[in-house]
Design a protein around this nucleic acid. Structure first.
Lengths: 151, 151
DNA sequence: TATAATAGTTTCGCTGCTTAACTATAACGT
DNA sequence: ACGTTATAGTTAAGCAGCGAAACTATTATA
């Protein structure tokens, strides 16, 4: 609309306000859904679900996951432990660097992740039912922007 | 751009993909920041911070907060307990309905919330430094859309 | 008035997180 | 080659957050 080459000022504040009034409650809602519905059916906590999701997206080590989730390595190590015991994940010692432990989903882990993910997505789809094409494209663009804030 | 009156299809999936690859890591990052920086300076956990924030935004009861955060009433009750002990919050029994407990920030609670909030916002501002006016306006609009998903 | 509904709290047990200390392996400087 | 330092991960202890169930107190309803 307007042609401002340098960073704005009050617009930033407005964006921050909107962010804070939207994202936390929305995320709470999603967490709540996963906890009550999906997690209950598949015996998986939200944190475990997140870890599976991150592993499938390419984070293959404890350190990677700790960085991505912004929590300590021991916390990840313990969570991974439970997932390995549950047969959803495997640990494999690295061959190049033997300190490294490669994490990978088992077939069952993959299937469970698919199931929860699809369940949650379909719930979100209904929540987005009223969105216009324009709104959706807007969301997509703004997600691409916000992604730059990570790391 | 395009003129579609009815709900789209693959655009929804695209929006969901972007959402999932952006929001969880971004939110993790923010939580991590609050935990390590702000919380450490002010001896306040993220959950306590959130509760103060919600109370100031108008949620004045345990039930309200439980709904907003999508967690159980006992969980809120316990968190409120700690905040009252810490002198950041007051409980006042309702006069109309004596079952109701009105929660309110103390002067100190207000000040602490301001401090953490401003600290976090200024950190986020630097993260948004590279955003163009257009991107920011986009974020604002999409937050308005996403807000409709809550509740 | 008896019964049901609502607001909040207490208790108990579980999970997730952190810090500190530890093992094992790799890289580096001398 | 060797001692130091750094890195990857784990274990252990303790605390915070959460839910389920059971409870108190108050208000609404039949």
């Amino acid at each position: 609309m307007t042609k401002s080459p340098s960073p704005p000022k009050e617009i930033v504040e407005e964006a921050l306000d909107r962010f804070w009034e939207t994202v936390p409650p929305l995320w709470s809602q999603i967490r709540g859904y996963i906890r009550s519905a999906a997690a209950k059916n598949f015996r998986l906590s939200i944190e475990q679900f997140q870890i599976l999701r991150l592993i499938r997206s390419g984070r293959g080590s404890v350190s990677d996951l700790a960085t991505a989730k912004n929590i300590s390595r021991p916390a990840i190590s313990q969570a991974v432990d439970a997932l390995v015991k549950g047969g959803l994940l495997t640990r494999t010692q690295g061959i190049e660097d033997r300190r490294h432990v490669q994490l990978a989903l088992t077939g069952r882990g993959d299937a469970v992740l698919d199931a929860i993910f699809e369940d949650t997505r379909s719930w979100m789809r209904t929540k987005m039912a009223s969105f216009s094409r324009n709104e959706l494209e807007n969301v997509i663009r703004s997600m691409e922007s916000l992604k730059k804030m990570v790391d």
